[in-house]
């Protein structure tokens, strides 16, 4: 399968790379790379969900401990959660998986403490 546009040596080099397994297909049907790439996005999604359920809604309706705190204090911590969710999303965009998970974890911690 030589390419007529390349020289003999270039074709040989190309063949050697191909033989070295440059093109590999998966047999089991699970593309782990895709799953790996989705984990940061999944964690960012979880962060938004937790923020909405355990920070935003309690703050707005004065639920749980939020009811016994000043409204300004609740607003500050809700915005802190928002910042962490934004950071998790941008980390996912930038393919910074570890950071995305760390920011999500911090949202969970904040929501539990809040």
């Amino acid at each position: 399968m030589s390419n007529p546009l390349l020289t003999a040596s270039q074709n040989a080099e190309l063949a050697a790379i191909r033989n070295a397994g440059a093109i590999r297909t998966t047999d089991n049907g699970i593309d782990w790379r895709v799953i790996h790439a989705l984990i940061p996005w999944f964690s960012a999604f979880v962060a938004w969900l937790w923020w909405a359920f355990f920070l935003l809604i309690p703050s707005v309706f004065g639920l749980h401990y939020a009811g016994m705190m000043p409204a300004m204090n609740n607003a500050a911590y809700t915005m802190m959660g928002l910042t962490l969710c934004l950071a998790a999303t941008i980390a996912a965009q930038s393919q910074h998986g570890v950071r995305a998970i760390a920011f999500t974890f911090s949202v969970l911690l904040l929501a539990y403490w809040f």
């Binding site: 802190m80 910042t83 962490l84 934004l86 950071a87 941008i90 980390a91 930038s94 950071r99 760390a102 920011f103 911090s106 911690l109 904040l110 403490w113």
Partner: peptide
């Protein structure tokens, strides 16, 4: 200690967003 943990995460997020 608990507040320090939470605020450190926030400060890092602030710094990270600035870097990005």
């Amino acid at each position: 200690l608990l507040s320090l943990t939470l605020i450190s995460f926030f400060e890092y997020a602030f710094h990270y967003l600035g870097g990005q």
